[in-house]
Every structure is written in structure tokens, then in C-alpha cells.
Design a protein around this nucleic acid. Structure first.
Lengths: 157, 157
DNA sequence: TACTAGGGTTTGGTTTTCCAACCCTCACCT
DNA sequence: AGGTGAGGGTTGGAAAACCAAACCCTAGTA
């Protein structure tokens, strides 16, 4: 019997504990776009400055962003994504595509991303082994911790 | 000069406004795993019951989940993903893979997902046009709203 | 000297979240 | 008929997160 009070151990939860707070992923968005200075972040995200301060500290501590000076005398800093941060960008792209599809039906997409193959980026999540697109019906979850199960595959409502 | 107070219009922000609150994506995780009943959600997520209630209402309103009875007399409900909800699953898989890579180096991954090609799922985000893997260096963002650039809003000229 | 800009920190008040406890309905057991 | 237990919530108060505005400090500029 698993500990009765603990939630399911899960990398999704672990990842969200780091980047799931309000504004964190938007910070990453701006930083990936190259807007890594404090007041750019304030303006482009619309977050309160103190919240931004704590988010930035947290993301730096987590190794997702790095703070580096771009000028001594006056000391000025800029935040840039680390490798780990850059590897979150596909998550952002996938989320953006979902938002474009479900929240902006009428072709008023706020931003278009171009892939350097020359086409507009439409991100698709695929299985690295077979190359096939990932669909719910093709997935089977296997929890590794004892005491945790799943209820079998679910069809859409 | 662009409106000085509004944040950058963005589908990522729009999507996060719906599913970015604490626990929302974990609800989706459980529901996709087939654990759609209230107390399963409470146990597996570890969220307070009242928060869960508001999250569920919000996700149903947003068309991401559907609430349906699985028993009359006693009336019992279950939450299941809609099509829009299922299309968020790739986001979860990508996030899980990131968490596995960066937060669980020592091979203690909490959950393994199997793709029905027979292999363990390692999700990769690709460009649907060329099939290539999406990397930061290959992307160029084109904001569509006037006044917004990737180098900061309202660029002088 | 005054004014601006960058990069924050402080202050004080509002909103969310958290947590435990409670409620209600039904079904089952005795 | 009474007790128990599960499902699906609601309620109330304390704790934490959030927010806007004001403030601070350094450095450059007029």
C-alpha cells in the first residue's frame, strides 16, 4: 500500500513545480525571443515587478535561465535560457499551436513562427522510435512506483 | 506608440489562462489516464477538494473536459477529456519528457509511457512541414500585432 | 542641477489557496 | 430500523500569493 496522503509521483508534476507558477512560462517565452531584460519582461508579460523578481530567481536557481551582465558600470543584467531552458521551448510551441487551434479559430493568430525549412512552423509531437504522431489512443501508461495504477485507456467524451 | 499597458498578445498566454492554474494540467493528466472521478482526482493529485471543484468547473466550461454520469441513482459523475483536452496530451508528454531528462537523471522515472509501435515513448516535437526536429536556432518569430517585435515593443522607428 | 533609464526592493492591501471539518444522498449490511 | 461507508461536494478561517504604486540606487545626459 502506498503512502495514503502523497500524490502520484510524476515528472509532469515535478516540471510544473518549477515552471508551472503564473508567468514562469511567459518569462521563458520572452527570454527565448531574446527579450531578457527586466523591464522588457515587465512590459511584454504584464507581470508585477516583484513577482517577476521571484520568478527570475527561481528559474535561475533551477538552471533554466542564466543571469549575465551585458554592461559593467552601470551594472546591467540580462536573462538568457540555458540548455535546459531551450529544451522547454518545444513545450511552448506545442502549447501555442493548441491555443492557435482552439482559441483563435478565425485566423487571428497573435504570432507566427517560421521554421528554417522555409515553412510556417506547425509543431507535431511524434514518437522518436517510430516517427508516428502521438495520439492518445496509442499510449499506455506504466507507473513505476508501487501502489499506483491507471484505469486503462480512455476514449474522448 | 503601442498601448503601453497591455502585455504581448500570445496564444501561449491564452492557453495558460485556461490550463495554467495550479493543478489544472494534473487534472488533465489523471483524466487522460482514465481516473476521472472526484475522489480519484483528490487522491492522485493531492489537491484540496474545493480547488479541484473550481478547476473542474473551469475546464468543463472551457470545453477541455466533459462531465458525464456513469450512474443514475446514486448519481455519480466522471470527468473525461474532450477532443480539445486530448489534444493537450502531447503537451503533457513533452513536459514529462523534459522532467524525466532534467529532474530524474538517475533513471528513477516515475512513469513510463508505451507507444503502440511497441517502444517506450520518447516524444519529439517536429515541424509538420519538413519533419525535422524543432530546435531553438531554427525558429524565427513573427508577431502579427502592430507594435510588437521580438526585440521589444514599439521599436523606435 | 535636473532628468532619464535600468534593475530592482518595499509597502500595504486584495485575492487565492490551503486545510480540516462538515453536509447530503444513496447503497449496503445487520 | 440503524449503522457504516463511498461519492461529491460546500463552508470558514488562516496562510500564502498576488498586485499596484511608490521608493531606492547607480550611472549617464542635458
Amino acid at each position: 500500500m502506498a503512502a495514503p496522503k502523497d500524490p502520484r509521483p510524476c515528472s509532469i508534476a515535478d516540471a510544473l513545480a518549477l515552471v508551472g507558477e503564473k508567468y514562469s512560462l511567459l518569462v521563458l517565452r520572452e527570454v527565448c525571443l531574446g527579450n531578457g531584460r527586466f523591464d522588457q519582461l515587465v512590459r511584454n508579460i504584464g507581470a508585477p515587478r516583484d513577482i517577476l523578481t521571484t520568478r527570475l530567481r527561481r528559474l535561475v536557481d533551477a538552471g533554466i535561465l542564466a543571469k549575465r551582465p551585458y554592461s559593467e558600470r552601470p551594472q546591467r543584467f540580462e536573462y538568457r535560457p540555458t540548455q535546459a531552458g531551450l529544451e522547454l521551448e518545444p513545450v511552448l510551441m506545442t502549447l501555442m499551436a493548441w491555443g492557435d487551434r482552439h482559441l483563435h479559430r478565425d485566423d487571428d493568430r497573435p504570432m507566427v513562427v517560421e521554421h528554417n525549412c522555409g515553412n510556417e512552423l506547425v509543431p507535431v509531437v511524434t514518437c522518436s522510435a517510430c516517427g508516428g504522431q502521438v495520439h492518445h489512443a496509442d499510449l499506455t501508461a506504466h507507473p513505476q512506483a508501487p501502489g499506483w495504477t491507471v484505469a486503462g485507456p480512455t476514449a474522448a467524451a
